[in-house]
Amino acid sequence: MRISIDIELKDVPGELLRALEPIASYGGNIVSIVHLREEKKDKVPVHLIFEIDSQEKLKKILEEYEKRDISVLKIGEAKRRIVVTVGVVGHIIDTDLMDTIDRINEVEGALVEDLSLRMSDPEKESSAIFKVVLSDEEIKEKFFERLYEIAREKDLLIIKSISD
């Protein structure tokens, strides 16, 4: 399982390491560390995501945190965010690219994260690859529904990836 945890560390050297050690020693796999260093604070909030294969090991890690005086602000199972890659061909700019992006972003849990676009000729159709982050797998259907609705309206060709 993938755990998302917010902890608070003292702003002294070596503290982060002290927080990561227990995860490593129980065989956890650290996925991301976000260090939110705000000024004039003696405590630093840190957001960690890690993978661990059992509840028992997670319990052990949390006990270790208690021993080490690391306070846990929030803990939960991290949803696996997925990135969907789609190709688009058509009059992407002329049909209001901003509107296309906005309407994708309106789908809750979907966010256009990256967009590369090429035109061969201003008169001709352009081509693009969209990367859209979805907060979890269930959003996929809604996202594609919206995408195809836009595509029909603006006469765009959608090229899905093989896994979608």
Binding site: V89, S116, S120, E125, S127, A128, I129, I159, I162
Partner: peptide, 20 residues
Amino acid sequence: KITPELITLAKEDGYVVKLI
């Protein structure tokens, strides 16, 4: 409707375009 530009963009991203 597949353009060489789309194919190039896909390639840059680690994909090829195929009729499936």
